[in-house]
Design a binder for these strands. Structure first.
Length: 544
DNA sequence: GCGGATCAC
DNA sequence: TATGGTGATCCGC
């Protein structure tokens, strides 16, 4: 009963906060829209000295009137409506909590459940590992500066149409990744924009990993410019004690080695798990490092003070939803754990709690391509395309490059989807499971074409193709042969039994698929074109 | 299983 | 005038 009263106190406190929030709601109707337009990387490093308010105004003014703006405005409105609905829901819960005895009991039980879940999490905490997150500083930009020294002294960004990254000089103007070039130029007219040079970045990325691999041969690249390492085995091998000073020294040495060998400066986070190491590497960017204690109490205090957005996985939307409940920090998440469990799905609230306690995975493992779930490619057109012929030729070239990619990785696929973005920035996907596995460009094109034609007429600014349910070609045929007693494998297309000879099997199937494709394409020409099924589920623009 | 939405980089 | 590409996951239906 004591428990129960305590929770009601909490609830009343929250209710007061809610009333205050409601009174102050109409400060700036477009505040959230302005924030949204500012992009996802507002809290990235290098922004400390900029006047964010003013920059957001400039971005807002530059965006206003565009189709993109309209689309974002619509999304923002939907989000705000959703938040308002949730706020009403919460109010109703708190009202019930005041007067409904049965609900009071339920609430108390729910709280107890969550508390024991938290205790379970705490007792399973692994504090024994030394995990390091290595994050390259302004990666693409720093490589371009290595390629051309002069770029070091000017505000510079890398990208094409949309910027991928900006050097720190450009960031002072509010220039950020994911920002369109024309807006960046409004913020910084003298900005130098360098086109992307991905192969160079991949090469440099590999060089950096080679240095890091001396400390952890099992390191796990998280992206082209991020790596997780487990330094525990290295520390043990060297017979180092795992106190903070020693760990800082080791990581300092690692960063120096990377800089010396590759010319790239990196920021590092040291902690007991990946979640905390990732947060830590962001704390002192650029070119520095930060360590999070390995003591449970210190960790919990550290995390409780963080804004929710610092957690990997809490993005712009969830951040806003939480702010709508007056939840600003991870500590607020813990404090509001019971009401959160009512308004979010179990998986979401469990994840929020876990992160807020600073609990994360300690597994640092690189699965490489074997773990890949999908592969695809997409392209944005400089002008929206309406002509079916043109769309289909774009689709064909997408399928060609995708097929090349598949071949390189020895992959075949059992499921296909296309992605379309209309000229009003609405995105749709159409997916279909296939009867067998496909991998060559003609088959890809044939299947993608069927999906695309169902959606005509269209006015598209983007078209994409993606494959899922992947397996490697070699493992597929190996498994076929393994399970076939006669040492032969049925052709997936014509079902004729084939000899156990990978090259011969491949050749036969390629041939078989191609004749099948020809037949299907001819059939499509006959049947589907004149029919041209119309569907109006997607917003369609063929206005006159 | 499919499609939309969110998230990271 | 004008807002990217690739891959993953969760949720509702």
């Amino acid at each position: 009963m004591k428990q129960c009263e305590g929770h009601i106190d909490d609830a009343e406190k929250d209710k007061v906060i809610f009333d205050v929030l409601e009174e102050n709601q109409e400060v700036d109707d477009e505040a959230t829209l302005k924030r949204r337009l500012a992009g996802p990387s507002v809290l990235k490093s290098g922004q400390e000295s900029v006047n964010q308010e003013k920059i957001n105004e400039i971005i807002y003014a530059a965006s206003k009137g565009s189709k993109y703006f309209e689309a974002e405005q619509k999304r923002d409105l939907e989000l705000r409506n959703r938040i308002e609905r949730v706020q009403k829901e919460v109010k109703e819960y708190y009202r019930k909590l005041e007067c409904d005895k049965a609900f009071q009991r339920e609430w108390a039980e729910r709280t107890d459940e969550i508390d024991s879940y938290m205790e379970e999490l705490r007792s399973s905490r692994d504090l024994s590992q030394v995990i390091v997150h290595v994050d390259c500083d302004a990666f693409y930009a720093s490589i371009e500066e290595l390629r051309n020294e002069n770029l070091k002294n000017v505000p510079m960004a890398v990208g094409k149409g949309v910027l991928c990254t900006a050097n720190y000089m450009a960031r002072k103007f509010g220039v950020r990744s994911a920002m369109p070039e024309f807006i960046a130029r409004k913020l910084c007219p003298e900005l130098v924009v360098i086109p992307l040079n991905i192969p160079e970045y991949a090469k440099k990325s590999k060089e950096i990993q080679d240095v890091l691999a001396q400390y952890d041969p099992n390191l796990c690249p998280a992206s082209i410019d991020e790596v997780y390492m487990n330094l525990t085995p290295y520390m043990d091998r060297q017979e180092f004690t795992k106190d903070e000073d020693t760990m800082q020294k080791v990581v300092m040495e690692i960063r120096n080695n990377v800089l010396e060998a590759t010319g790239v400066s990196v920021s590092c986070g040291i902690a007991v798990n990946k979640l905390l190491a990732k947060i830590a590497s962001n704390m002192k960017k650029p070119n520095d490092q930060f360590i999070v204690s390995n003591e449970a109490e210190v960790i919990e205090k550290f995390v409780s003070e963080l804004p929710t957005r610092r957690i990997n996985g809490i993005g712009r939307v969830l951040e806003q939803e939480l702010l709508g409940l007056d939840i600003k920090t991870c500590g607020d998440i813990i404090h509001n754990r019971t009401i959160l469990s009512y308004i979010f799905k179990e998986k979401t609230s469990q994840n929020l709690i876990q992160c807020s306690l600073g609990i994360g995975s300690t597994i640092v493992e690189d699965f490489g391509d074997s773990n890949r779930k999908s592969i695809g490619c997409e392209i944005t057109f400089s002008n929206a395309i309406t002509s079916g012929g043109l769309l289909e030729s774009k689709l064909q070239s997408l399928c060609q490059s995708l097929a090349d990619d598949l071949l390189k990785r020895d992959l075949i696929a059992n499921s296909m989807s296309i992605k379309i973005k209309t000229d009003t920035f609405q995105v749709h996907t159409r997916q279909k499971n296939l009867r067998g596995y496909i991998y060559n460009d003609t088959d890809l094109f044939c299947e993608a074409l069927k999906l695309l034609r169902m959606e005509y007429p269209l006015r598209l600014r983007l078209l994409g193709v993606r494959l899922s349910k992947l397996t490697t070609k070699s493992s597929y045929f190996a498994s076929q042969i393994k399970f076939s007693k006669q040492n032969s494998v049925p052709c997936p297309v014509c079902h004729k039994n084939l000899e156990d000879d990978l090259a011969a099997v491949n050749q036969h199937i390629d041939l078989c698929l191609n004749t099948e494709t020809v037949k299907t394409v001819i059939n499509n020409e006959k049947k589907e074109l004149p029919l041209k099924r119309k569907r109006n589920t997607i917003d369609v623009f063929f206005r006159h």
